[in-house]
Design a protein around this nucleic acid. Structure first.
Lengths: 191, 191
DNA sequence: GTCTATACACGGATAGAC
DNA sequence: GTCTATCCGTGTATAGAC
């Protein structure tokens, strides 16, 4: 791996662990085993390097999600596969994490890949829900966009619960909760 | 408001906006209109001041949640009231936000109030779901803890979706999605 | 391309005057 | 209690040698 690549990969790791504000060029260079000069030769500065890292992370996450959501199975099974796919829960989401960073949110360029990735996955899930409705597998009253937002939020919020408690259990519980509602052969509520 | 109070309040605001890593003593002092000496007189340092701020924010959030969840209405209505209570969505959750901070997670003391608050609200919602089951208003197959985790995750993840897109709409969509599943007079899924 | 040297502001904290 | 002065390391960037 060349120096430029190593810089991007180190930045991705640090952004995931510590966010944009908490990531210094110095830490990146140490992790990449490079000197100051290399970084400023390949990139204009920290924001430029972070942009490259964020774009790659976003792209990768999109591909991962698409691989699962575009896989085999009924609509329910594909959503289930997305929610239960293997995750390093306590590390959190490398894309979602960035939304808590004020400097990322303040930068149109940095926020764009984050927004696009989340929007794309949401659209994908929404389409699957609509497909399930057409097949009579989901109640016609469900709104694809709303269910997709709830599913994505369950994942993103699951990370919060898990990290707060120091255990992945709460993430799993949230996913089970949502799936039990989505799968319910009986109504959730009866009045 | 005395200096100590102003320091705590300024810290709370900054922790909410920028997180622990992104909050400097200097910024706190400027916002509080105090000098260096005041801060180190009342508090041992940044971690100590942050602890006071986090504890207060956590306590306040717990009280707010309890006020809504302990209010009048059916179990469904109380959960709905919690999910739809007025929020400054784009600012995110002042408690949940802290879980993305590596230094908060690394500190047993700082993480404790965050964990306890989230756990308490989750227990509260879980109890309400169980109450609803006993009343025959929720399907007996639902698990209170799981539904509670899903509800909390929907809120916490809703902030992520909203901040990513720069609009509160996605938060509202997620809440609608979850409530539609919880309320479903028809099953969500029919196979 | 990569390194070292240098720069200067900021982060976090202490000392001591008032 | 609060202020100013001072300290040292780090964050971010530039300059210029190799």
């Amino acid at each position: 791996m060349n120096t430029s690549e190593r810089l991007i990969e180190s930045t991705r790791e640090l952004l995931w662990e510590r966010g944009y504000v908490g990531t210094s060029p110095k830490a990146i260079l140490e992790r990449a085993g490079a000197g100051q000069g290399s970084m400023y030769h390949h990139f204009k500065g920290k924001p430029d390097l972070a942009l490259a890292a964020v774009r790659r992370t976003a792209q990768e996450m999109r591909a991962t999600a698409e691989a699962v959501l575009g896989g085999p199975g009924t609509p329910y099974e594909r959503i289930e596969a997305y929610l239960t796919r293997e995750r390093d829960v306590l590390r959190g989401c490398p894309v979602g994490r960035l939304t808590m960073d004020p400097e990322v949110i303040a930068s149109e360029e940095l926020r764009a890949p984050v927004d696009e990735t989340i929007a794309a996955i949401r659209e994908r899930i929404a389409a699957i829900v609509e497909e399930g409705k057409r097949q009579g597998r989901f109640a016609p009253g469900l709104d694809g966009q709303d269910i997709a937002a709830a599913a994505l939020a369950t994942v993103q919020g699951g990370y919060v619960l898990a990290r707060a408690s120091g255990s992945p259990a709460a993430f799993d519980a949230g996913v089970r909760g949502l799936l039990s509602l989505l799968a319910a052969p009986d109504p959730g509520r009866q009045d």
